[in-house]
Write a protein that binds this DNA or RNA. Structure first.
Length: 575
RNA sequence: GCCAGCAUAGCUCAGUGGUAGAGCAGCUCAUUCGUAAUGAGCAGGUCCUCGGUUCGAGUCCGAGUGUUGGCUCCA
């Protein structure tokens, strides 16, 4: 049985890679080798530590096998026979994988050349049908992904039908490297992380901070316009608070150890919710004042394992664009829908159009009555449908305290990023015993929803840098315009132009260095400045600038008023 | 945290056991220029840290720190 899909080809390529590894290191033990979204991998266990040189050797052996058009031969056999086969070969991982196969399923082996693998298939007819192959990297990987189990060596590779398609893929990787926010972050002087301060702790430089400020202003305006109020809350709280909230029971591995203040242990906050709840609890609440929509750009600190830190995308101190919505059960559906609508508006404003939803439902171990879970999930589902979002359901994937919707956005390179999260919480309202007085004069338990739209400002900034490849749209650009006089003779005119633009709050600089115009342009281009105004004799005579834009290049002479009108319009449209 | 790499000037990198190098950036001087690099000069180093081997370590060995690619986890 064979099927010539890309997945099948990659899976077959994984087999051929395993065969090549077996030919080079006969003592290797094999785990599994599936295809992935981008290619394939195979996990091995052996004494020899694989390196880059080995990948070349393996690739070479693979090419040979591909050239020999080795058939993939399927053989079905009894569980006993299969066990005997892998036991004889000393393939202990294969024996464990074999034990995972349900009793009623047939056990099949696939052979290609001297390599035989436990495999459901399907495969290509023969290895000659594998197109262009490339091995990419070696990495460690736990058996079954469990950190208590042995660490295996994983080789990642990819395969495409043709050399051209493979080259396209490799070019995309190159393009992604050029956009890497860590590289651009240093080049454009946006942020830095210092060994002396600590890993995962971010310093925002003037240009990065300027962008953050613009994001925050936009965010606050949008929240006020959409019925939210802002809170500011402290960075630390007593041990007792975190016991009440349940964080010390369920989240302690993410929290830093306590500090002593007057003999009392205090913890730095990993979340803002307990503080918001105490604001709610500061006096009795009536149903008339619900929903409460309270937002905060709350800076939190979470312990992340050293190996997972990654630029701005995974850090230990970050600012969540957090909010908590406390409302009555009758309001919950509208509230969820409103949050989702608001989130999509924010994403659109920042230039992200493709968005997918992931709904996570009740896990085995959960708090809260099942009916509440059902109502919550139903309202999440309705909201997603109402907004016409594509949605996948992750059954049992919710947190123990409530179901959630996560949004993933697609960037300019088609990569997905998890950002927005909208989470029900049936735990904390109980633990803090919060209530509201209903129409009936009785106390009722409100619903509570946590939500972060951008996720965290650090992570969002990282995504934004890569999405725009450092060339921020005009409204976000830290330096919107640079004025470049042709020579020092026109410095004064350049200053006059700058003054005209500054009156309109345009962020700009003047390049008065004694360089050639080519040198100045090059420098400005490298800084990804949206508009360059080149000024010389002709411009001075006519009260204009020679415009060069980041997106279109040379655009010719333009009156200062016309230029101002144009960029003002662009800024207003968040373009 | 675990596995495997990497760490030399602000940045990108060369330097295989014998006196630390280049380009760019910086500073100074000259040049006054029309759309992606004007020229010359100067300055710049705890070769990540600590320990070891050696007559001698940027180079070899060990430990630590940071970082990269993964695993696990997640905003």
């Amino acid at each position: 049985m064979s099927e010539n899909s890309l997945e099948t080809m990659r899976h077959s390529a994984a087999h051929i890679m395993a065969a090549a590894v077996q030919s080079l290191w006969p003592e290797a033990k094999f785990d599994i080798g599936p295809d992935t979204a981008e290619g394939f991998y195979y996990d091995f266990d052996m004494e020899h530590r694989l390196n880059q040189e080995d990948l070349k050797k393996i690739e070479k052996a693979m090419r040979k096998m591909i050239g020999r058009k080795l058939p993939f031969e399927r053989r079905e056999l009894s569980r006993k026979e299969a066990e005997a086969y892998f036991a004889e070969k000393g393939q202990s991982f294969k024996l464990q994988r074999l034990a995972d196969i349900p009793e009623d399923e047939t056990v099949s082996l696939y052979s290609s050349g001297d390599f035989t693998d436990l495999c459901r298939g399907p495969h290509l007819e023969h290895s000659g049908q594998i197109g262009a192959v490339k091995l990419l990297s070696v990495a460690g990987s736990y058996f079954r992904g469990d950190e208590k189990l042995p660490m295996l060596q994983r080789i990642y590779g990819t395969a495409f039908p043709s050399q051209e398609e493979l080259q396209d893929y490799l070019n995309r990787i190159e393009e992604a490297k050029k956009r890497d926010h860590r590289k651009l972050g240093a080049e454009l002087e946006l942020y830095s992380i210092h060994e002396e301060i600590g890993p995962g702790l971010v310093c925002w430089h003037p240009k990065g901070a300027r962008i953050r400020h613009i994001i925050e202003e936009f965010w606050k305006r949008a929240h006020y316009d959409n019925g939210y109020e802002m809170l500011y809350t402290p960075h630390v709280g007593k041990k007792r608070l975190w016991e009440t909230s349940g964080h010390l029971d369920f989240y302690s591995e993410g929290m830093y150890s306590a500090m002593d203040i007057d003999g009392d242990p205090y913890y730095v906050k990993p979340m803002n919710c307990p503080f918001h709840i105490l604001v709610y609890k500061s006096r009795p609440r009536s149903y008339r004042e619900l929903p409460c929509r309270w937002a905060e750009l709350g800076t939190v600190y979470r312990y992340e394992k050293a190996g997972v830190l990654h630029g701005l995308l995974r850090v230990r101190g970050f600012t969540q664009d957090d909010a908590h919505i406390i409302c009555t059960p009758e309001q919950i559906e509208d509230e969820i829908r409103e949050v989702l609508r608001f989130s999509l508006y924010v994403w659109k404003s920042f230039g992200f159009k493709e968005i997918k939803a992931y709904l996570a439902t009740r896990p085995e171990k959960a708090v809260g009555e099942p009916e509440r879970w059902e109502q919550a999930i139903a309202s999440l589902r309705k909201a997603v449908q109402a907004e016409g979002l594509q949605c996948e359901t992750d059954e049992g994937g919710g947190a123990f305290y409530g179901p959630k919707i996560d949004l993933k956005i697609k960037d300019a390179l088609g990569r997905e990023w998890q950002t927005t999260t909208i989470q029900f919480d049936f735990n904390e309202p109980e633990r803090f015993d919060i209530s509201y007085i209903g129409k009936d004069g009785a106390k009722h338990r409100p619903y509570m929803v946590h939500r972060a739209l951008l996720g965290s400002l650090e992570r969002f900034f990282g995504i934004l840098i890569e999405h725009y490849a450092g060339a921020f749209p005009l409204w976000l650009a830290p330096e919107q315009v640079r004025i470049l006089p042709i020579s020092e003779k026109f410095d004064q005119y350049a200053r006059n132009v700058a003054a005209r633009l500054r009156e309109k709050q345009i962020r700009l600089s003047l390049d008065l260095e004694p360089d050639t115009i080519g040198g100045k342009i090059r420098r400005a281009r490298n800084q990804r400045i949206p508009y360059l105004c080149i000024v010389g004799e002709k411009e001075e005579e006519s009260g204009s600038v020679a415009l060069r834009s980041q997106s279109k290049g040379e655009e010719g002479m333009m009156k200062i008023e016309d230029f101002l009108a144009r960029i003002q319009k662009e800024i207003d449209e968040l373009a």
